[in-house]
Design a protein around this nucleic acid. Sequence first.
DNA 1: TAAGATGTTATAAGATTGCTATAACAGATA
DNA 2: TATCTGTTATAGCAATCTTATAACATCTTA
Lengths: 127, 127
Amino acid sequence: MILSIDFNSDEAFYIQLRNQIIIGIATGRIREGDSLPSVRQLADNISINMHTVNKAYSVLKQEGFVKLDRRKGAIISLDVDKQRGLEELKEEIAVAMAKGICKGIRREEVHRLVDEIYELFANWEEG
Amino acid sequence: MILSIDFNSDEAFYIQLRNQIIIGIATGRIREGDSLPSVRQLADNISINMHTVNKAYSVLKQEGFVKLDRRKGAIISLDVDKQRGLEELKEEIAVAMAKGICKGIRREEVHRLVDEIYELFANWEEG
DNA sequence: TAAGATGTTATAAGATTGCTATAACAGATA
DNA sequence: TATCTGTTATAGCAATCTTATAACATCTTA
């Protein structure tokens, strides 16, 4: 899987990495047990600092997506707390939806959007 | 409508204000044509700096929620670009949904969540 | 006309965050 | 032994967030 940085984005590098890896898991390109590149290796590949990669991995660990092993590096290991996941998801999309409501977006249109995103992730094509 | 700041939150003050005002519009507590408190007045009320309030208002202006008038202050004025709104919403919820998918949340559960949020906004009671 | 309120702009300072740089450490591997 | 892991520490630079003070033009009101 290809990880890359948009140096012109206003999103922090470590957030960009985090998001790409989460999407990688959601789309099945990375699976439970797979290992991520070592912090130094990935940092070299994409020309950013080791500590920035380390921060991305630490966040992923804290959020329950990977386990860090001094022997094997970062291993995808999903800590599934569905109830908590639902609560977090609700909180994360609430403001965005409020914004959408102000713009006249109706309930059915959000449902359609949700389906679109599920399709997008299910039929993901690299690149 | 009551605007307030959580001084312990890790969200920037101006973002907190922005979100509260957007939710206020979505829930109908603020309507087109209503005016927001002046930057100085609100800043005094909630004990933050005038410029922080001004930043919140500027963001809301830039996002098409208010118009700033030197005579009347900040007036709610919705600039509805639905197509753009849909694209922004899609982008804003995509990563959150990817995270949810990793946590085993199914499509129908997201639909239920969307309905819940719509109900929440429709039947809003001042806290 | 004078006083007061409005948004706007400018400058400065302190705190925090993001990113980089360099370095060292303990544990595992070859 | 040499090399690769993650981890930790320290430091510096730039940007962002927040506050503080101050001034300006415009509009409203007394």
